[in-house]
Design a protein around this nucleic acid. Structure first.
Lengths: 365, 365
DNA sequence: ATGAAAGCGCTAACAT
DNA sequence: ATGTTAGCGCTTTCAT
């Protein structure tokens, strides 16, 4: 027997003594078929080791049952966890998952998307690297189901999932203030958005009463920081904001060290994401400061190790896996034909207290 | 103009006033074409916003330029980093990447592979969850290019990439012995392989002079542990082996705590992978032991946080990203037609000394 | 319920 | 160098 070539429906049909249409109907699970022919076909398929060719099926149905995911960087725990959630849901629905990295650059994103679209994905989950223009996404959204994860894009009305970054940051900073902290440092990669500088961002936020459109999560967290200060009547000291210029641990460490060494520095550091936290941890250790005696720390995004270092690190944990699951579910619904209005899923965060934040209400300065 | 339907080659051909074959030739970059017609076609394609449909192309060429990756769990930093390496190389070659999780179960693996094969992947990178039987892999290997990562399978002669686990572990344990340690604990998930128990494994290793066939990395690391003891003439004490039954942090913590609390316990702990290390870290903190004064630690697999906790954690780092790159390159070569003998790429590990291992040669017990 | 035939979008002979 | 034609493996009318 010739087992060099993969068995096709035609082979099965011939073996079973039926037409290709009938074979297709039982193998593909569509249309009518009598029990008798069914058995014949199934037996023949079994014998020949028939495996359907989804390509051919997709070409005709126009559906690949495959979705694309454009991550910033899949090796970061943030995206890796999200991806796991996505993968789990897709798996139960028989969908495939094609992944790419944008490396947070528009070029990479455009390239990734083109590749994915050529492979005829049914839908896209993306963490867009630009929250402003993103014309390519707006155009794509007209033809392809899409859900945004972690970030939103101004003027792009599609499903999205994320957390209330500003709200979570505000609550966090308010707690710090309640615990006696007045000099609250922030370590963030505030890459140039539409704002000239940090000062004009503050101005804008205040002008709008603490509300603003879509922006990067780190800016949103900064917004929460501002709101908490304003609500408590605590003046903002921009010298406490370490603005990291490149998204790297090394640069973060340098920026954080500088912040820690300046005269009249912060009593606590608030870091805006996992990478900022790692750079800041390194800075704290290198400056020899003790946590939480000399410096307190609270991090946005929870990481594995935070529970087994000493002190444990306080954090705001995003439900990453669930974010992925939710995104996947929303996307599949769209693919299935749901054409209701875009939904914005805001998942709750969890605040972990582990001992890295010191209560200094009754402490001497 | 009707932009509801995607433009096809036929549309472009019509618009350009040429045959579909000519249009196909310039758009697909094959066969001859005059500059004149080329321009016509390109212009028409541009105008219609033509995007090739890789499905149709693949159906006919028999190549999808997509490969599959079956990971144990993509959210673990180990696989996430490997995946990044794979993705990078594929990207430069215009290949797509379809990922799935096996969750280290044969069922999941089989299911994953079937899904991937139906999508007609050109090749497979897999971290097999069974190093023994794996009949499905052996069968598959006859028709589909495949490279194994991290683990090998007995009797499956295909390309693979990994590190010299036994050698690295042996060197590591020898160093511990040289530093005065005589009671070296090991925390490992030694899931039931073909050996009745740990004792019979030791027996087997010794009988074969420290060599054995393919097996799980954790068993290989244990083999290195045995070899180092035997080479140094240090008797093996099986009560120092914490055999973790389930691959979870919680169970690891419990097993490690038990090991730490037993009378005449270890002076140092050797953990066999990232998850074992995290569970062990938790155990060390919960028992209140000081590192490295009360207990030393060295870990197989390097993790982000090991450099910024105190003390820093000594580790054996696998070049995960490079492993992924190498696997991807090997696979692409196979897809391109390389039919030379299977290659086993053994990448070098790096030993990081950071202060979690204490030199006790001159210390009182 | 089943079969014959058309065709998804593209490439690959085979002509010219 | 270009056009014509025949499929790739499957689904989907349309008959019967």
């Amino acid at each position: 027997m010739n087992e060099n070539r993969k068995a096709t429906i035609a082979d099965v049909a011939r073996e079973a003594g039926v037409s290709t249409a009938t074979a297709g109907r039982v193998l593909g699970g569509y249309g009518y078929s009598s029990g008798e022919k069914r058995d014949l076909v199934l037996k023949a398929a079994e014998m020949l080791g028939y495996q359907p060719n989804q390509l051919a099926r997709s070409l005709i149905t126009g559906q690949t049952r495959t979705i694309g995911f454009v991550a910033g960087d899949i090796q970061s725990p943030f995206f890796a966890k999200i991806l796991r959630g996505v993968s789990d849901v897709l798996d139960t629905q028989g969908f495939g998952l094609l992944i790419t990295n944008s490396d947070e650059a528009v070029d990479g994103e455009v390239h990734s998307i083109r590749l994915l679209m050529e492979k005829q994905i049914d839908g896209l989950i993306i963490s867009p690297c630009d929250t402003e223009g993103a014309k390519h996404l707006k155009k794509l959204a007209q033809t392809t189901p899409m859900v945004l994860i972690d970030r939103q894009v101004a003027g792009l009305d599609v499903d999205s999932v994320g957390v209330d970054n500003a709200g979570a940051a505000e609550l966090c900073v308010r707690n710090l203030i309640d615990t006696g902290h007045e000099r609250i440092g922030m370590v963030a990669e505030l890459h140039s958005g539409p704002w000239k500088d940090v000062g004009s961002f503050v101005h804008m936020v205040r002008a709008r009463g603490g509300e603003a459109g879509p922006m990067y999560p780190s800016w949103q967290r900064f917004m929460g920081y501002i709101r908490a200060h304003d609500a408590a009547g605590l003046p903002l000291d921009l010298s406490l904001i370490a603005r990291v210029n490149s998204y790297s641990i090394e640069d973060t460490k340098i920026a954080a060290k500088q912040l820690l060494r300046q005269p009249n520095g912060p009593t606590v550091l608030f870091t805006t994401d996992g990478l900022m936290t790692e750079g800041t941890m390194a800075a704290i250790f290198e400056t020899g400061l003790q946590m939480p005696e000399d410096i307190s720390l609270i991090a946005f995004d929870d990481l594995d190790w935070m529970s087994f270092v000493r002190p444990g690190i306080d954090s705001i944990a995003q439900p990453r896996r669930k974010m992925g699951e939710t995104a996947a579910r929303m996307l599949i619904e769209r693919i299935a034909g749901n054409d209701g209005p875009p939904r914005r899923e805001m998942l709750p965060v969890r605040h972990n207290e582990r001992g890295s934040v010191r209560d200094i209400r009754n402490a001497r300065r």
